[in-house]
């Protein structure tokens, strides 16, 4: 066996070990957490009522302690920055929804103890619509919303 073959074999073994490690890390954590499964029904919901119901939200109060930061006008609907933060005690979850998108729910985050109730991400918006931040804090749901005017839709890319 020449050295090149040995090197290739080592690389092959190395990468499959790395993959095994990744799958192991995910697999180890998943069985204990039922909510870690991808929320297919929630992400495929076509109406706000359906999206909220699949997220287990019966009622959500508005709260001045939650801050939703979005641009007033988005020139590019494909990349709209969204930041959600709040000063409520024990913020457990943040979901970001866009009311006029084909699927309302854009992203859902779960914060274990020690992680702050804060997230920044970027979402696509098909048209001018209302962005809703849904927060679960200490077992209760809260929502805040803001309109974003989209001058070029996010459907093309």
């Amino acid at each position: 066996m020449n050295t090149d073959l040995i090197r290739r074999k080592a690389l092959k073994t190395g990468s499959s070990l790395a993959l095994f490690g990744v799958l192991g890390a995910i697999g180890l954590i998943r069985p204990g957490l039922a909510h870690a499964e991808w929320k297919k029904a929630a992400f495929e919901a076509k109406t706000m009522e359906e999206a909220l119901a699949t997220l287990g939200v019966a009622a959500a109060e508005s709260s001045a302690a939650i801050h939703l930061s979005v641009p007033e006008i988005a020139e590019n609907g494909a990349v709209v920055p969204v930041t959600v933060t709040g000063s409520l005690a024990r913020m457990e979850q943040i979901s970001i929804l866009v009311d006029k998108n084909p699927n309302m729910l854009a992203a859902h985050f779960v914060f274990p103890e020690g992680t702050e109730g804060f997230v920044t991400t970027r979402v696509k918006m098909s048209q001018t619509a209302t962005v809703i931040a849904l927060v679960k804090a200490d077992g209760k749901f809260y929502r805040v919303s803001k309109e974003v005017k989209v001058t070029a839709g996010g459907c093309g890319g």
């Binding site: 890390a25 995910i26 954590i29 957490l33 870690a36 991808w38 929320k39 992400f43 494909a78 990349v79 709209v80 930041t83 866009v98 998108n101 084909p102 699927n103 729910l105 854009a106 992203a107 859902h108 985050f109 779960v110 914060f111 274990p112 020690g114 992680t115 702050e116 804060f118 997230v119 920044t120 991400t121 970027r122 979402v123 696509k124 918006m125 996010g154 890319g157």
Partner: peptide
């Protein structure tokens, strides 16, 4: 999923409305 010393510090789920090349910022203690 984000991990620190084997502990989960963030779990996220994305739908189709997250932008291409997803960007994420979060804060944790400890």
């Amino acid at each position: 999923k984000a991990l620190h010393k084997g502990r989960t510090i963030l779990e996220g789920q994305f739908g189709t409305a997250v932008s291409k090349n997803p960007y994420l910022v979060f804060h944790f203690k400890g």
